[in-house]
């Protein structure tokens, strides 16, 4: 029972990170109808920037800000320089270009920082607090929850309460009509990519100190898991992405907790296939969860 409780809290904590990462995927899917397969590599790149700033200034918070800022810039850059020019002649074009970007980013990171693991310090204690003899949630877990919750709320406010959020939603749903109404759809696309990459950068900064370490390939598996979370929630639904992330985090926590860490990829594939073959639209496809 104690173990179950531990695994549940741990699963929710990593699930929160998956949720943020899945949210980043959903943001781009809604804006551009494509899955950004370079999301993981981009997040790692920004995490390197973040930890370089941490090393230079000694402040985790400055590093976090730098990573998120780098995410904004990288996302905008990738959209303006690459994705905008992917032709629609080959429907696989955007996936392949994104994968080329993965190879490029990982190689460049390897050249600049080296291919070995670098330790990445967490800003809070990652060991669980012991309350009444039961090891429960760690301060770092609490920070993860708080950070992801803040991001989710801010995004929800941005999309529902601000003019730019309205513009972004309109251009995603009806680009031509939006242009006729004076919305610069191309710019909204750039903003969407920037936002998504910034959220991805935050997720990267949150997940890397939890045992992954800083490495060009640190997010490979995380990307696959987050993709699964996004698919579980339905690629179109931000609310679904959050719930999907938490759900996948929980399931993987139980699976790896009881069956061993090597089973993670198997569980991910099984989960992904099960959802896609049984409910291709995601678990929440029946619900109108498009408002956020």
């Amino acid at each position: 029972m104690e173990r179950f409780l531990f695994l549940t809290l741990d699963g929710l904590s990593t699930g929160a990170v998956y949720a943020a990462f899945a949210l980043a995927l959903v943001l781009i899917w809604r804006a551009a109808r494509l899955v950004n397969f370079a999301q993981g590599a981009m997040a790692v790149a920004t995490a390197y920037v973040g930890y370089a700033v941490v090393a230079a200034t000694g402040s985790y918070w400055l590093g976090l800000a730098a990573a998120v800022l780098a995410g904004l810039l990288l996302g905008a850059l990738v959209e303006r320089v690459l994705m905008r020019f992917v032709g629609h002649a080959n429907p696989l074009g955007d996936v392949i270009v994104a994968l080329g970007l993965v190879l490029l980013i990982q190689a460049v990171l390897g050249m600049v920082f080296g291919n070995e693991y670098r330790p990445a310090a967490a800003p809070f204690d990652t060991d669980g607090l012991t309350v009444g003899g039961i090891t429960a949630i760690s301060p770092y877990d609490l920070w993860v929850f708080a950070a992801v919750a803040v991001v989710v709320v801010l995004l929800a406010l941005l999309f529902t309460r601000t003019p730019i959020g309205l513009r972004m939603r309109a251009s995603a749903f009806a680009p031509e009509v939006s242009r006729l109404l004076g919305v610069d759809v191309n710019r909204m696309l750039t903003v969407g990519w920037a936002l998504a990459a910034a959220v991805g950068a935050l997720a990267g900064m949150l997940v890397i100190p939890t045992g992954l370490g800083l490495h060009p390939h640190a997010m490979d598996l995380v990307f696959v898991i987050a993709f699964t979370a996004a698919v579980v929630g339905g690629l179109d639904s931000p609310v679904g992405a959050v719930i999907g992330g938490l759900l996948v985090g929980l399931i993987l926590s139980y699976v790896t907790g009881y069956l061993g860490p090597d089973t993670t990829p198997l569980a991910v594939l099984a989960l992904l296939l099960a959802v896609l073959l049984v409910r291709p639209g995601g678990l929440f496809s029946g619900v109108r969860a498009r408002q956020v």
Binding site: P163, L166, R167, R169, S178, L181, G182
Partner: peptide, 26 residues
């Protein structure tokens, strides 16, 4: 210059109020 396209171009996913506000955002 305003253009109401064929088939009207109401953004189905947005509310009436959001559709209308969209027209004046610029």
């Amino acid at each position: 210059l305003a253009h109401v396209p064929e088939g009207r171009g109401v953004v189905a996913e947005l509310t009436v109020d959001e559709n209308l506000r969209l027209g004046g955002l610029w």
